[in-house]
Amino acid sequence: MAPTISVSSLSKTYESGLVALADVSLEIQRGEIFALLGPNGAGKTTLISIICGLVVPTDGAVTVDGYDIVKDYRETRSRIGLVPQELTTDAFETVWATVSLSRGLFGKKSDPAHLEKVLRDLSLWDKRDTRIRELSGGMKRRVMIAKALSHEPQILFLDEPTAGVDVELRREMWALVRQLRAGGVTIILTTHYIEEAEEMADRVGVINGGRLVLVDDKVELMRRMGRKELTLQLHKPITEIPRELTETFDLSLSEDGTELTYSYDTQAERTGITQLLSGLREAGLRFRDLRTRQSSLEEIFVSLVRRPGDGS
């Protein structure tokens, strides 16, 4: 299937000399949830801004459904809804006025029924005649999403959608994103909450210092990059790990001597678990319980963006 967004060799150097993006190429598939991860200043917002027409690229090209974002901007932009990171809303207008404006701006004929549905989905219907400045921060965030959805976009960009949002609203937003995806909308979200990407994304792209470090299927990424730990609860505490075991296995002992932790690579041909277990029996160690833990996307992310020389 042809990608819905195709970014090729995109670069952006701001007038200040800051290189925000360096030779980024990326394809977004139709109907997927793509999470763009990266520390602050990595270039996430610049990338989104270029695709949406807010920033002019220095080099490279972007197409949306085969249309060039510069030459065929009407085609590309009418397909895209953008929820920017900053809470930028009108202050004195009502919710209804601002979503009506958004719909018109994107060239869609007025459709009160659709706007009503969007507002209801976002629990904003009761607030439709309220001036935006009277709304709470979380409500304003919803208004911005409502604006982006008012014109029925096929692609939705959410730039840090849950920054500064309480847990309840975050859950609601995740539900909404899933609902949109079920309706065929492609969603690209940037976040520095790894939890969010882990929860939501089909694929993950990691951007750092303006370069796309990695793009991968989330599950695959976690499987490939992840390490696993097997923790064994010993029947009786020990003071030292038997030497014959430390020679072969990467083991550590908890302070109280009751837990033995084994780290292994899930991708390795042999994980060594069977061997370890027989080794334990030979050493006369019995255990009461065991558990395994897979490293999170966060740990993978940190290992990816940590630059050499950053120290520990």
């Binding site: 932009r77 404006l101 958004s102 701006l105 604006k147």
Partner: peptide, 13 residues
């Protein structure tokens, strides 16, 4: 000033 210009600039206008 408020930043809402982003919408006009990202619209097919």
């Amino acid at each position: 000033f408020t930043g809402t210009i982003y919408e006009v600039l990202s619209a097919p206008v």
